[in-house]
């Protein structure tokens, strides 16, 4: 104890201790379950994003130009594939129109409420990425839409390829997206996402619980024992719980195993979206529903 007091007499040691206590206090404050950011944070984030957007986009154009030249060779193959997809799309579109009309008629006949009808009517907001964090353990992205544009925390963010993350914090003009690679069961700051399999939406169920950075695969847990899930199935969000929208592509199943206790299955999922060189992303706006129906 006396040794400690002797140490404390040293001014430098004393300042270090004060600094350390302050640091722990600030971390504790930021880890607590905050609904909103404080105004200095909002101001700093908005200012930084305002400046960064002048740099990110031109850099993207220049880099994109060189990439385009490299991609010239594979354009023909891609074109062939796209033509096939377009043909399939035209067929499906006709069928979709019939099904949609019928669905609408049935909803009318069953007298669905306005709330039930609007439940899956999602709005896709297009946003520009402004910057990417340079911290290996916190790869958050900043996008240029904020609470003034109707973005709220916990909204899903996708690219054309698939789900990339969730909005974790919003300021008036920007919002921070936590990528899906930060998903972790043990972490105090993240939620899990309910998913299902494309084509068997009613039969399959699983929860994306964590992302393994060492193998760069997502872990899907709590799958029923007699689920017919197979390798190469496409995993999509199920929208159960109505927090995250349904029907967003997450990735493909790579392997399935028996879970920890032998009662459920787990599967590893390969992400379909890539996190490098992002430009445009879509924020999926779930319709705001008044739960009170008076």
């Amino acid at each position: 104890m006396i040794e400690l007091f002797k140490l404390m007499r040293n001014k430098r040691m004393f300042m270090l201790m004060i600094g350390f206590i302050l640091f722990i206090a600030v971390i504790g404050f930021s880890l607590s379950d905050r609904k909103e950011l404080t105004w200095p944070e909002k101001f700093l984030k908005d200012t930084a994003a305002y400046v960064q957007q002048w740099f990110y986009k031109p850099a993207g154009y220049i880099a994109g130009f060189f990439e385009d030249i490299r991609n010239l060779r594979i354009v023909y193959e891609e074109n062939e594939q796209l033509r096939l997809t377009a043909a399939a799309y035209a067929r499906d579109k006709i069928e979709y129109n019939f099904v949609e009309k019928e669905n609408k008629r049935l909803k009318e006949e069953l007298s669905f409420t306005e709330r039930q009808k609007e439940m899956y009517n999602y709005n896709y907001l297009i946003a520009q990425v402004v910057s990417v964090s340079n911290d290996a353990n916190n790869r958050s992205l900043t996008i240029n839409l904020g609470s003034k544009n109707g973005v709220r925390p916990n909204m899903a963010v996708t690219t054309i390829d698939g789900l990339i993350g969730l909005v974790s914090a919003v300021t008036p003009f920007t919002s921070t997206v936590t990528p899906i690679t930060e998903l972790d069961e043990a972490s105090p700051t993240f939620n899990s996402i309910a998913v299902t399999i494309l084509g068997r939406e009613d039969d399959s169920f699983g929860i994306l619980s964590s992302y393994n950075k060492e193998t760069s695969r997502l872990l899907m847990t709590k799958i029923d024992e007699d689920d017919k899930l197979t390798v190469q199935d496409t995993v999509i969000t199920s929208g159960l719980g109505n927090v995250y929208p349904r029907g967003l592509v997450v990735g493909t199943v790579e392997s399935r195993q028996v879970g920890d206790f032998g009662l459920t299955l787990t599967a590893t999922v390969e992400l379909s979206a890539s996190f490098d060189h992002l430009t445009e992303v879509f924020v999926v706006q779930v319709p705001e529903l008044e739960d009170t129906e008076q």
Binding site: L16, G19, F20, F23, V26, I27, F29, S30, L31, L37, P40, E41, L44, K45, A48, A49, S131, S133, N134, D135, N137, N138, R139, S140, T142, S168, A169, T176, T178, E182, S187, T189
Partner: peptide, 21 residues
């Protein structure tokens, strides 16, 4: 601190403390 606030994901203060130290 600037980095912590602008790229806030999980916690604030880690970069400020370590960089300063």
């Amino acid at each position: 601190m600037l980095q912590d606030v602008v790229y806030f994901g999980h916690l604030i203060g880690a970069h400020a403390f370590i960089m300063g130290l």
